[in-house]
């Protein structure tokens, strides 16, 4: 039953290829429509060449409770520029027209999906070329609502495991997870304090004993050095706040995209990717 529900996806193929190359995945997060639709599209389209292996696209929400100031501000910028769930799906369609390889994972909160409503959203997401989703506020206790319908459509439902996910709970968290497992390296919100590497190493090892899926680590990773160290103990690293923070610093005084908004994001992604390849070179 389970394997039937898990056809091979772009995510699976991506991690298999990385494994053959012997290097960790670099997962980038940006918010759809930040700072505006066109700039966001240009950022997304250039991410793979800059070094992103997997792209997480944030679906802006008015009340991002699990996010720190950088992602909150990014979400609000996108909403202010008129981003909606429909436009986020459109953005993915436009990306897919040019890139049919790079895995895309949507990340966000339940309410905008619930009122879409869920079934219609999942259908459209699959048709748009989305590979998986991370929905922060839908725990395994509510799998029937969104996770199982997503799996039925061939979408991976990627679960967050956290430092508070103990051994008793881990099986429930992993049960319907596919694609990869996202280990949240700290108890906290996005963009907060950097993780303690020895803790991360132990936790990732613990999770890997319970699942064959790749484990990527995120929350609090900002610099190439941190990325390299974290990647040493996981199958990949997620960077988000540092990217949307870069967007913020390039905006004009009117809050609109500046001349180097797109290139600045691609530059930091390039540098982080280079840092990660340093990790690969050492193993």
């Amino acid at each position: 039953m389970r394997s039937q529900l898990r056809p091979e996806t772009r995510i699976d193929r991506c991690f298999e290829a990385l494994k053959r190359e012997g290097r960790p995945a670099f997962v980038t997060f940006v918010t759809a429509g930040d700072p505006d639709y066109e700039t966001s599209k240009a950022i997304l389209l250039g991410l793979p060449e800059a070094g992103a292996d997997v792209i997480e696209i944030g679906m802006p929400f008015s009340d991002p409770m699990a996010d720190g100031p950088a992602v909150q501000a990014s979400s609000l910028r996108a909403l202010k520029a008129g981003q909606t769930m429909k436009r986020t799906l459109q953005l993915v369609r436009e990306f897919r027209a040019k890139d049919n390889l790079t895995p895309i994972v949507l990340m966000g909160y339940y309410n905008p999906i619930y009122v879409y409503p869920s079934e219609a959203f999942l259908d459209e997401a699959r048709d748009a070329g989305i590979d998986g989703m991370i929905i922060v506020d839908v725990p395994p206790e509510a799998d029937e609502e969104l996770c199982l319908p997503a799996i039925q459509r061939g979408l991976s439902f990627i679960r967050l495991a956290t430092p508070t996910t103990d051994d008793k709970r881990l099986p429930a968290v992993l049960a319907n997870t596919s694609g990869f497992v996202y280990y949240v390296s700290i108890t906290g919100i996005t963009g907060a304090a950097a993780p303690v590497v020895s803790d991360v190493r132990a936790q990732v090892a613990r999770i890997k004993r319970s699942t064959p899926l790749p484990v990527v680590v995120g929350f609090g990773v900002r610099t190439p050095e941190q990325a390299r160290v974290i990647a040493d103990c996981a199958d990949g690293v997620v960077v988000g706040s540092a990217l949307v923070e870069t967007i913020r610093t390039t905006l004009g005084t009117d809050g609109r995209a500046g001349p180097d908004t797109v290139s600045a994001v691609h530059r930091i992604v390039h540098n982080l990717a280079a840092g990660l390849r340093g990790a690969a070179a050492r193993v």
Binding site: A66, Y110, V136, E141, A142, L160, A161, T164, T165
Partner: peptide, 19 residues
Amino acid sequence: HGFFGLYGGRFVAETLMPL
């Protein structure tokens, strides 16, 4: 599961679920 009919439930981030 904390539901009053359709309403209620536990829709929080994983970090908080064990708590």
